[in-house]
Design a protein around this nucleic acid. Structure first.
Lengths: 132, 132
DNA sequence: TCCGTACTTTACCTCAACGTCAATGTTAAT
DNA sequence: ATTAACATTGACGTTGAGGTAAAGTACGGA
């Protein structure tokens, strides 16, 4: 039997499939330092432990919440410097807050944009319909 | 006196400034066929007429409404094929409509995202605040 | 031991809409 | 004629988040 999905060690292909990302993504995150490098076999094949996987899921969650990879890199740096979540959590909250603000601003813009468009559309339709 | 802002002929720098875009943008739009090539002096310097400028403003308006350059290219092609706005207006309306839909979808996503974030934030704050 | 599949790294490609040089040419005014 | 300010084209860079291909290696089952 393959080592593929034994209790605590999953290799990249299977893991990526189960997480809904590509292997490229996992390697990229590793390369960017968002996740720590996992253990390897003699031959160099990555094997991810439960902890690794939790870490990855955390990163994916943050991404889903709209943090950019760059921001997560920043968090990872703080994390490595202090090793304590005491420092990282305030920063994370800060990032989430500013992101929320940005979202609300964006929503505002899009709303007014939608209004503009419908107005513009109306003018076009009127102009296009009446002249005949 | 410079020819820069004489009645009907404005050169690219002054025009771009007054429109709030860069010269690069105007040249790009021309290169992409979104706006027709303006007259040039003997030496090759672009001089924009009022008509040119109206056209540019139209393009910028559409852009403001969220049309991509690619979509405007498409419109320009239709326009060149038929030379009649009879064809172009329905297509423009179509594009505006689909764009409006996209905006509303995007707003929906962002709204739920904002909710997710605030929930997540709360969990973090709770977890961070209580344990001591 | 061989095969097929999964894995490895490296490196270039994608999209959008420009930004930013660089090297050179044109214009208008003095 | 010189100079300052502007213009020209072309090419490469940027941002974000990976995609894709190539060429080679590792592993597990038969």
């Amino acid at each position: 039997m393959r080592l593929k999905t034994s209790e605590d060690h999953r290799q990249i292909g299977e893991l990526s499939r189960s997480l809904g990302v590509t292997t490229r993504t996992l390697r990229l995150y590793e390369q960017m330092g968002l996740i720590g490098p996992p253990q390897r076999t003699e031959g160099g094949i990555r094997y991810y432990t439960k902890d690794d996987i939790r870490r990855i899921k955390f990163v994916l969650k943050l991404k889903e919440l709209g943090l950019s990879l760059r921001q997560m890199q920043e968090l990872a740096e703080i994390y490595h410097e202090t090793k304590m979540p005491d420092r990282i959590m305030p920063r994370l909250i800060e990032l989430l807050d500013s992101h929320t603000d940005a979202i609300h601003r964006r929503i505002g813009k899009l709303s007014s944009l939608a209004r503009d468009i419908s107005e513009y559309r109306k003018r076009i339709v009127d102009f296009y319909a009446i002249p005949r």
